[in-house]
Design a protein around this nucleic acid. Structure first.
Length: 869
RNA sequence: GCGAGAGUGGCGGAACUGGCAGACGCGCUGGACUUAGGAUCCAGUGGGCAACCGUGGGGGUUCAACUCCCCCCUCUCGCACCA
């Protein structure tokens, strides 16, 4: 009698087994090829959601598959544990952020284990621990030494609700990325990291990232925003002042009819008499498309033609980009054109689409390339050529110089918050800004503080923390109370996993690839440090939402570490997979608003019986209640079903639509597999456990042997081809369908040869499904009399000859229309194929009396007979 | 506006280098087993009675187009006064 498929039972059993055998432990081994498979570590928010499940299921299949392919795989997991929600919980519920965080970690870790994810937990990292954030502080000091960290007062993005500063990357449409409140500007002293020092390199090297999605590369390129042009000096008529402007179109200099300054440009205060107007413009945050200007009464002198042009203050000019001042060429820039029309300023055409053609009065700006007119000796040149020559002309005459600008700004990392890495700085009245000496690291975040939610960081009230002595003069001094942006933590965490190498308690400092002096000489590969062995990450997997933030910062940090001699590479992630979102239809009751899927039965609201409205399919969200809880799903179907479903419903890079009946379908599939193996296990069970687990291919030519080889080939190719797990799983479903068909047609008993063939088919099946549904694979593997663990067996191999189909269906077309299909043996020559096609009765009939113009043979596919008229 | 990607049955999605459109799953229809079926198994399932017609729309290249080229439409995502 065979038992039912009970996922709860077998999954817990094998999870326990894997844990006991410590089967996912990874160790550096220079004799083996390594593979570092990494998923973006989660913020311990409380519980995992389906997005996590999908992300980690993808990573787990890759890790498990590559282990089977013989790689030494590093597959770690950790916690991005600092951050605002912990502090908010403290304010709201009175729980200490540390306690809240650690409790969440414990719960979520159990959830991940329940999914059967193959992590090496011995390498777990938690960023809120001093042993981790010590290295944030150390790196900060190293950057400070090199001028890569600095302090400046600046207008910053301020979220009034979170009472903190936001990085540019954290402002979305003028709103806080986290709480969605409107962001305001505020001037504060901040610590910055000089990512702009690497702007050029970060941009250039994007082209080397062949394993990254084009989309992410483009987003980073746009973010860095390089533009080439010139800075030009305009003297202000009747004063000693000058205005420095930036332009990407020096070829249009002769068409400049006015100059604009940003409202917060330093010169604006000097030039504008009416301070109220200026104040109003500075505070203007209305529709940016409405052009506002104010004439200063002053004129600037265009250096190239000595022409006097009016100076305006304009709301559309940004102080943060370029020089905060522009030359306006209304004929060739639409914004300038709109402005000129509004304030009745002259428009002078200096570029025309075709040589020597005079232009008519334009009704819009001509922004394309063309030929110069009215530009002195440069007239007649093509604009691209003119740009170069004019820049030279500017430089020779001291009018200006070549200049490259970037949109990328330095990264403000100060946060007026408690739950983060303390910035290791001391302020002394006598000595000024003094870095905490390295040997005093880490600066520990004090735990006994109060959370009121008012007036900034609780650290300000912690006198023990705040008041210290100056490392230089010993006098009374004050600590920096700002903490670091949590994106600092995640900018190098992938290295921290490497450092947790067994038997080598390493630090970042010691891990320098150039001087492996501290690394224990236990083996002959001691010269290879864990970082240089494991890095770079071969496959990184996570959401696109980190396309610029985290992924750009990580690339920046890696370069800093490279220049410090700690790592010997520039790019941390060789291949990047940005998985799609998990979506679901939202459901709405006219009476009860949004409904959870569990509140709907037969398309009706369970509370009032009204028919539900079906909303859009969009990202799962609590507010629209279109969510499913991984815990519920696991309880109902087990981890294997959830894993397989989230890999089957869509290819990894696309959005996945959650479907309750789709999940059922996968559960049925696993049940069918279970029952199939159960029914056959007495036939094919290997009594001799010593020699079991071979899964060697029988040399026989039986159809199921061939089918097995063919399936192995196709599944392997699907996985290798951009991880198309959805089709790989479809192949396995087909495989099961065909095996069932084979078995159900069987009336007599099995021959020895057939038994061997079936055993081979099933074992190959289990090995292939293993990375996807590891528990059922392990259980059935052992039920066949094999010694666990299935994880110790390699990925099955196929034989090209046995994977070949002996005969195939040939499609016969006449003039491109299908007329017949015949089975023919593989390996026929083109002539033989033609002959057989023409001999087919239906074809014979169709072509009788007609003139055959041509016959095209597409091997293994079709024949197309082209008839003349 | 700029940049990127995508439009295929009732639904999610397949389709190699141009070579049978719709694999696989869901749903649906019919049947078997059953006291019962929301379990399981079997069969069918793009449209059309047919010739034929079908991959957002229109043109083109080709013996052959979901696939290549041109024009247009729609949707999604990212950036958005960056001079």
């Amino acid at each position: 009698m065979h038992g039912r498929y009970e996922p709860q039972e077998i999954e817990l059993k094998w999870q326990e087994f894997w844990k006991r055998k410590n089967i996912f432990k990874s160790r550096k081994d220079t004799k083996r090829k390594k593979f570092y498979c990494l998923e973006m570590f989660p913020y311990p928010s409380g519980k995992i959601h389906m997005g996590h499940v999908r992300n980690y299921a993808i990573g787990d299949v890759i890790a498990r598959y590559l282990r089977m392919r013989g790689y030494n795989v590093l597959h770690p997991m950790g916690w991005d544990a600092f951050g605002l929600p912990a502090e908010n919980a403290a304010i709201k519920h009175g729980v200490h952020p540390a306690r809240w965080t650690y409790e969440n970690i414990a719960y979520m870790k159990a959830q991940l284990d329940r999914l059967g994810l193959s992590y090496d937990w011995q390498r777990e990292i938690t960023t809120c621990q001093p042993e981790y954030y010590k290295w944030n502080q150390w790196l900060f000091l190293k950057m400070l030494e090199r001028g890569l960290a600095y302090r400046k007062a600046s207008f910053i993005n301020w979220c009034p609700s979170c009472e903190t500063v936001l990085a540019n990357e954290q402002v979305i449409d003028g709103r806080c990325w986290r709480c969605d409140s409107s962001v305001t500007q505020k001037e504060l002293e901040q610590w910055f990291l000089k990512i702009t020092a690497y702007a050029e390199e970060l941009l250039r090297d994007l082209d080397t990232l062949k394993g990254w999605p084009e989309k992410v590369i483009t987003m980073q390129k746009n973010w860095i925003g390089r533009s080439e042009g010139a800075e030009v000096i305009f003297k202000i008529d009747g004063t000693d002042e000058e205005i420095l402007i930036f332009t990407t179109r020096p070829d249009t200099l002769w068409g400049c009819t006015f100059v604009c300054l940003a409202p917060n440009h330093p010169l604006a205060d000097k030039l504008v008499r009416d301070k109220d107007v200026l104040k109003e413009m500075k505070g203007f945050y209305g529709d940016p498309l409405i052009k506002l200007g104010h004439f200063t009464g002053y004129y600037a002198i265009n250096p190239v033609n000595r022409k006097k042009v009016p100076i305006y203050i304009a709301n559309f000019v940004l102080m943060e980009y370029g020089t905060g001042a522009i030359m306006s060429v209304p004929a060739h820039d639409q914004r300038d054109f709109d402005f000129a029309k509004k304030y009745n300023l002259p428009i002078e055409v200096v570029i025309v689409p075709e040589r020597d053609v005079m232009s008519e009065r334009p009704d819009r700006a001509y922004e394309d390339e063309g030929y110069l007119i009215n530009s002195d000796k440069f007239s007649g040149l093509h604009s691209i050529e003119a740009r170069e020559k004019i820049i030279k002309f500017l430089e020779e005459n001291g009018f200006g110089k070549r200049k490259i600008n970037y949109k990328l700004r330095d990264w403000g990392i100060s946060r007026q918050r408690y739950w983060g890495t303390p910035i290791p700085i001391i302020y002394c009245d006598k000595c000024g800004i003094v870095p905490v000496p390295e040997k005093e690291l880490p600066v520990i975040l004090p735990e006994d503080v109060r959370f009121t939610g008012k007036g900034g960081s609780p650290l300000l009230e912690s006198h023990e923390f705040l008041i210290t002595s100056c490392p230089r003069c010993g006098g009374r001094a004050r600590r920096e109370t700002d903490t670091m942006d949590t994106f600092v933590d995640s900018s190098w965490y992938f290295l921290a996993y490497c450092l947790k190498e067994e038997g080598a308690d390493l630090t970042l400092e010691q891990s320098s690839s150039l001087e492996p002096h501290q690394y224990p000489r236990k083996s002959d590969d001691f010269l290879v440090t864990p970082i240089s062995y494991w890095m770079p990450v071969n496959q990184y997997i996570g959401g696109v939402e980190h396309a610029v933030l985290h992924l750009l910062y990580s690339r920046f940090f890696t370069r800093v570490l490279r220049d410090l001699g700690i790592v010997n590479f520039s790019e941390p992630f060789t291949n990047l997979l940005t998985q799609g979102m998990v979506c679901m239809e939202s459901l709405k009751c006219p009476e009860h608003d949004w409904l959870f899927p569990s509140e709907v039965k037969d398309d009706k609201c369970i509370h009032c019986g009204r028919p539900v409205e079906h909303g859009r399919v969009e990202k799962m969200s609590k507010s629209k209640k279109n969510i499913v809880d991984p815990d519920d799903m696991i309880k109902r179907y087990g981890a294997d079903t959830i894993r397989v479903f989230s890999l089957f419903a869509a290819p990894p890079e696309k959005d996945l639509e959650w479907s309750a009946s789709g999940v059922e379908g996968i559960y049925r599939f696993l049940n069918r597999l279970w029952n199939f193996v159960q029914a056959l296990s007495s036939e094919i069970r290997d009594q001799n456990t010593e020699t079991s687990g071979a899964s060697r291919s029988p040399s026989s030519n039986l159809s199921i042997v061939r089918l097995t080889h063919r399936t192995i080939k196709r599944v392997t190719e699907d996985i290798e081809k951009e991880f198309h797990f959805n089709t790989a799983i479809a192949r396995m479903m087909e495989f099961l369908n065909e095996l069932q068909g084979y078995v159900s047609q069987k009336t007599k008993g099995y021959s020895e040869e057939e038994r061997a063939a079936l055993r081979f088919a099933i074992e190959s099946f289990l090995l292939m499904i293993g990375p996807f549904a590891p528990h059922i694979a392990e259980e059935l593997w052992s039920q066949l009399g094999n010694k666990p663990s299935i994880l110790e067996y390699p990925w099955p191999e196929w034989n090209e000859e046995l994977a070949r189909e002996l005969e195939y269906e040939l499609v016969i077309q006449i003039n491109g229309k299908i007329k017949a299909k015949i089975m023919i043996p593989d390996g026929l020559s083109d002539d033989e194929i033609k002959e057989r096609s023409l001999a087919e009765p239906k074809i014979k009939e169709a072509i009788s009396g007609k003139n055959i113009k041509n016959i095209i043979v597409a091997r293994k596919r079709l024949v197309n007979i082209v008839l003349g008229n």
